[in-house]
Design a protein around this nucleic acid. Structure first.
Lengths: 131, 131
DNA sequence: TTTTTACTTTACGTTTACGTAAACTTCCGC
DNA sequence: GCGGAAGTTTACGTAAACGTAAAGTAAAAA
């Protein structure tokens, strides 16, 4: 069974980020580890949050965007109808953004495939007909 | 028929970026418009490049990354075998990165769907049982 | 002709996401 | 008990990607 708490360097090495980055995310209100004395202790949910932060980053989300989603989500447990509707709106927005990204990726894949085969052709040409 | 040359503001409005950004891309060696006097004239291929730059940005590519790909591509027409192999490597790298992005998007979509339905449940709950 | 309007260069400012160094404390192994 | 590893805070530095202001040119419109 995987442990239920983690040190900062546990997470740093697992996700291949620096401890500096993890502390920065806390500074930006994205993570809230508990403390044993001075030392940060990360829970399972904390670890999931970090994973989400990094996934968002790979997809071009700013830390502020991710934090906004986290905050809306956290407030939604106690939230009013208005809060829930706002959260719903943001979720829709992100979903649409992801759809656009899928299109962008599809286009770029086509272009890379085309570039790849033209590159391959050029290489074959060079082999058979060394200028 | 769409025109074969464009002004800087043509492109700016078509792609919804500032002229400042377009000039910046030129400064970073990503675009090379011709000039009529001082004024920049963009060709069809220039326009395609801009589209690629912006698509790359939406997917988290840095301008430096995109420029590197452009340079390799440009050199590949006159290039040696080594150049072509390098280009091929870079293309493979980008393709793998896109695969990772597809995975990230799929995961995030699942999580957003889940968040969405839980949010919907909470809203229904509030309607039927207004605390 | 004057005045917009669109374009230009130069240059300093700003935000994001950390890196890096200094100067500690705390704990672990020997 | 002592050195080293791992943790901490504070603070200044930095790269990327522009924003924004200043100051000028050039052509079109009134």
């Amino acid at each position: 069974m995987s442990p239920s708490t983690f040190s900062i360097s546990d997470l740093a090495s697992e996700f291949d980020v620096t401890t500096r980055s993890i502390r920065f995310y806390e500074d930006q209100k994205l993570l809230f580890p508990t403390r044993r004395g001075q030392t940060r202790i990360y829970s399972g949910p904390d670890r999931v949050r970090l994973k989400l932060i990094l996934r968002g980053k790979r997809l071009g989300f700013s830390l502020a965007e991710t934090r906004e989603l986290f905050e809306l989500w956290d407030e939604s447990t106690t939230g009013s109808m208005k809060q829930l509707e706002l959260l719903m709106t943001k979720i829709q927005e992100k979903k649409m953004a992801l759809e656009q990204q899928l299109k962008d990726i599809a286009m770029l894949q086509l272009e890379l495939d085309s570039a790849e085969s033209r590159c391959q052709d050029a290489m074959n040409e060079l082999k058979n007909n060394p200028a």
